[in-house]
């Protein structure tokens, strides 16, 4: 059960409604997830976070990042699994499959197993992200160099920031136990297992 509910535009003071409009414009869907929590606190902060998130989003509407949609959706899954982000997992698993992350890989990440037969790029992304998320949160020289060589300086910054963005929004989502939106529930594949925590 979510600990907070949606703040509708008309519930906000007039001078705050422009932030609600900004979030809605960037999301292009009913507002859900992290923005429910942030709008309960500061619509200004919600708009700033939406602006950042738009850069990494992957619904075919936003291709600001130089990373492929596949890489971004894969990172969203890695982050959701590591931080037990059930909302994000539910939101992103379909987009990841659509973007070309394989069913076998999705299942392995969900069950915290090493995915078999990863393409070199996917193996590199998983390795880099896992090193930052676990242990002493450092990336080894070899992994870092491989990432820099493969993605370039801007690409490797965007890789780390994609992970960072999804991690950032995991904390408010988890703290307030935000579940899927009505739209996400409707669109969910009933055969798709949720993220066990």
């Amino acid at each position: 059960m979510a600990r907070l509910s949606m703040i509708e535009r008309e519930q906000l003071p007039e001078d705050q409604r422009r932030f609600h409009d900004a979030v809605r414009t960037m999301r292009r869907r009913p507002i859900s997830g992290p923005f429910i929590t942030l709008l309960n606190s500061s619509p200004d902060l919600a708009a700033r976070v939406a602006q950042l998130g738009h850069y990494f989003h992957a619904r075919g509407q936003a291709d600001e990042s130089i990373l492929s949609v596949k890489v971004r959706t894969f990172i969203a899954l890695i982050s959701s699994r590591a931080l037990d982000g059930t909302y994000e997992w539910g939101a992103w698993v379909r987009w990841a499959l659509q973007a070309g992350v394989s069913r076998v890989t999705v299942d392995a990440i969900r069950e915290r197993r090493a995915p078999p037969d990863l393409a070199p790029e996917d193996a590199l992304v998983l390795d880099f992200c896992t090193q930052l998320l676990t242990g002493n949160h450092r990336a080894s020289d070899a992994t870092y160099r491989a990432a820099l060589e493969h993605f370039g300086a801007q690409g490797v910054v965007e890789l780390v920031m994609t992970l960072g963005y999804f991690a950032m929004i995991a904390f408010p989502l988890n703290a307030f136990e935000i579940g899927p939106s009505a739209e996400q529930t409707r669109e969910r594949d009933p055969a798709e297992p949720g993220l066990p925590i």
């Binding site: 929590t37 942030l38 606190s41 976070v49 950032m168 988890n174 703290a175």
Partner: peptide, 13 residues
Amino acid sequence: TVQIAAMIGYFVM
């Protein structure tokens, strides 16, 4: 409380 959680997130990012 929302800002506490968001702040943790920003620092982790």
